[in-house]
Design a binder for these strands. Structure first.
Lengths: 185, 185
DNA sequence: TCCCGATGAGACTATAGCGTCTCATTTCAT
DNA sequence: ATGAAATGAGACGCTATAGTCTCATCGGGA
């Protein structure tokens, strides 16, 4: 029961924070249909809950990222699979839109920087394979992939697009928009 | 002096909120080098200040948007000019990242929906001119433009890209990523 | 059946931050 | 120079919310 409760609270926190970035512990507890005290028993503090939620998002993103990268033979293909995977995991980190106070958590901020840095490396490798147009700066490739992933996650969350459709569109946009090739899905 | 003070507070609020989304009135007043009471004299409440800041962002975006659209002869060209203009005005609305409680303000939310709706119309018109690839849904075109504008504004704010460079890259990415043509700038 | 750990409900405290008010000081226009 | 308007500093009260604690209850396993 303990594990189920913990997970239920995390889930509820995600949706509650998405609805209202300043959601109180009461809101979250109500969303999880759990006593407020239980939230503190599990996470100690509101900040602790947010940390746990962010850690979960980071871990999940790492998991799908690594799994995707494992199946790729070229860097370009890895970039494609990783992008699709992260779009698919959008529900796990979309709440970060809101919880901006997490940027003060050194551990969380460091993890985000690491993920961006890994993406930058991947883009660099794809560039060496000739996938990226030479005149497009790597910083923009990374930034725009980030922006498109957010846009796709939001569109999926709002029901404007299906997950698979969003995954296809993100990659299509990147591949046509930034690469030397012209892809069609 | 009154006008200068008011503007100074708005400016300070923008930068303070960008640094910390939960910036207090004290923080903002300190950033503006102004007494806390003065902030309340001018805006009545914290919410009033945020509303004024958001209204300013909306008005500025409208202004540059209309000005850009006035110089275009085709919808496609209008889309290009509007996109560039909004990227250029990024500093005015970038704080909205943070101030999520503004979504509860009906006026602000309505203005945002209106701007998205105008963008949607523009994309529709560009599509009728044959600029948008038929298999790409309009919702995605709008969402990705939005996402790329945010990404560009952030990159500019972080000093990763220059304004003109960012404007070029955003449009290049859209034009190559979503359109039937292949542009080079 | 009995027990123990998890939970729910709620009282209670502490504090941060908003908003008001006052008064002295400064600034600006005439 | 003088009066009015704007400002700065800070005291004060109020509310919302985090966090603690207690006690009754519930539910599953030995």
């Amino acid at each position: 029961m303990a594990l189920a409760t913990r997970e239920r609270i995390l889930e509820a926190a995600g949706t509650a924070l998405l609805r209202n970035p300043n959601a109180t512990v009461d809101h979250i507890a109500a969303e999880a249909r759990v006593g407020r005290a239980t939230v503190f028993r599990h996470f100690g503090s509101r900040a602790g809950l947010l940390r746990a939620l962010a850690s979960r998002a980071i871990a999940e993103t790492d998991r799908v990222t690594r799994q995707a990268a494992a199946h790729a033979c070229t860097a370009t293909d890895a970039l494609r699979l990783v992008t699709r995977a992260v779009v698919g995991a959008g529900e796990f980190f979309r709440f970060l839109d809101s919880a901006a106070e997490l940027q003060d958590e050194p551990e969380i901020a460091a993890a985000y920087r690491r993920q961006i840095s890994e993406l930058t490396d991947l883009v660099g490798a794809a560039r060496r394979e000739g996938f990226i147009r030479p005149e497009v700066p790597t910083a923009w490739v990374v930034a725009s992939i980030d922006g498109l992933i957010w846009a796709a996650s939001r569109a999926v969350g709002d029901g404007e697009l299906g997950v698979v459709q969003a995954q296809n569109l993100v990659w299509e946009t990147i591949a046509n928009g930034l690469s030397t090739e012209r892809t069609r899905t």
